[in-house]
Design a protein around this nucleic acid. Structure first.
Lengths: 228, 228
DNA sequence: TGTTAGCTGTGAAATATATCACAACACTAT
DNA sequence: ATAGTGTTGTGATATATTTCACAGCTAACA
């Protein structure tokens, strides 16, 4: 169907036009669902199919897909293969999403075990820890380096994303190190608010906060859900 | 959200009026910050102090605090002790936030090690796993039971919140079990969309999705940050 | 060749959320 | 006392996000 892609709205439209965070999150959900549908042998999918399992209504889905510039066909839906490759490019996964991890404690190890090997498109290339006992060993299939080696490794490997899994008190130091080394995005698992330059994106995953949130809503009977 | 979410409004105070999710998340942040300030010996705090470290602007902070019905004093700010106890009640922490964990894999163990003992107001009372090798042992200071024992234990202990840390394929089964046992809130760490009755609140923590999101924004230079 | 049904793309409306602006007030200094 | 300063509480406003509603396209079928 013909749609002119020009005139990307998004707020102030300075620099590059960025997709809103919510939309990006939903797009990642769609991608997962598409992979699943593809495995089942489906070739095309409708916006309402994509939406109903994820609790998102169809016009929302269509708007989101418009955002990545992918068009469907009336009465036929969206072609799965094409949409998937488009999304892979969109998320920068066409060459694989390569990251480093700082902090090899319990949580860091859990992440290594989860991602190394299992998730094809996501790779943790190296881990770093300040504990000399861990440095030099391979943990969960990933080599552990000292923090001093971080800048050179991140730069030479062209890594753009860092995961912070250190105690809160050391999170800022880790962030500074990663940012200085050239990372453009951070996944912060420490319960701390990081100060970074505006050119670096931070996604906070704060399990304690999430639990407290659930504590409130569990107390208050019910609550309509929302896809995040 | 399985079928319908129509008609559910939040505006007018029928029954209990629920706070928006975003507000609740910020309130949890304030609480952490207040604890920190209290440790430093502060007695009162201003909305702009609370806001600046968290990247939230002062009127927003004041509105949020209005939500819990706590009033400050012009020129003196908010009394820290009073606000903290108010928030504790608000989050249902006055008697402690007690939970159970389903799934004692890498991630489950990481959570146990993190929460058992360390976080005073949050307690994981019991862990459950289907692996007979784990059942009966104490892992990370928490006893591991078989899944069959879950309903009785949750009911008798009056647990309201469950944490799901099983593989995606088993997440729905775990959720069903917990809901049937009477849980009102779930923290879901599995990459799966859970179907639960509308009386149960689900908070999804999906690390893969978060990483993919960062992948996008890291590719696109910068992005203004937002407190979540 | 109609003709019908069903899906997409999108302007417009509705809703949710955040920010601004300022009156009212409380403390301090004089 | 009184003036001056700085902070709260909140109506009004602005922005962001979602949903609605429907025109227009496409396939299937008579």
């Amino acid at each position: 169907m013909t749609t002119d892609n020009k005139g990307k709205k998004n707020g102030t439209g300075d620099k590059k036009s960025l997709t809103p965070q919510r939309t990006v999150a939903r797009l990642a959900l769609y991608r997962r669902m598409l992979l699943h549908s593809k495995e089942e042998g489906k070739k095309t999918i409708y916006s309402h199919e994509l939406g109903e399992i994820l609790g998102i209504n169809p016009p929302q889905v269509r708007r989101d897909l418009m955002e990545v510039g992918f068009e469907g066909h009336p009465r036929r839906g969206y072609e799965i293969d094409g949409l998937l490759t488009r999304l892979d490019v969109y998320f920068g996964m066409d060459q694989g999403l390569r990251m480093v991890l700082v902090g090899v404690g319990n949580l860091g190890r859990a992440l290594l075990n989860y991602f190394v090997g299992k998730q094809a498109h996501i790779a943790i290339e190296a881990a770093f820890d300040k504990d000399p006992a861990k440095v030099g060993r391979a943990i969960g299939g990933c080599h552990c380096y000292s923090l001093e080696q971080l800048p050179a490794l991140v730069a030479s490997q062209g890594i753009h994303v860092g995961i912070i899994a250190v105690p809160a008190a050391e999170a800022q130091k880790a962030a500074d190190l990663l940012v200085k080394a050239g990372v453009r995005g951070l996944v912060n698992l420490a319960p701390a608010w990081l100060r970074v330059p505006p050119s670096v994106f931070v996604e906070d995953i704060d399990i304690t906060l999430s639990i407290e949130k659930v504590g409130y809503f569990a107390k208050m009977f019910s609550q309509p859900r929302e896809a995040k």
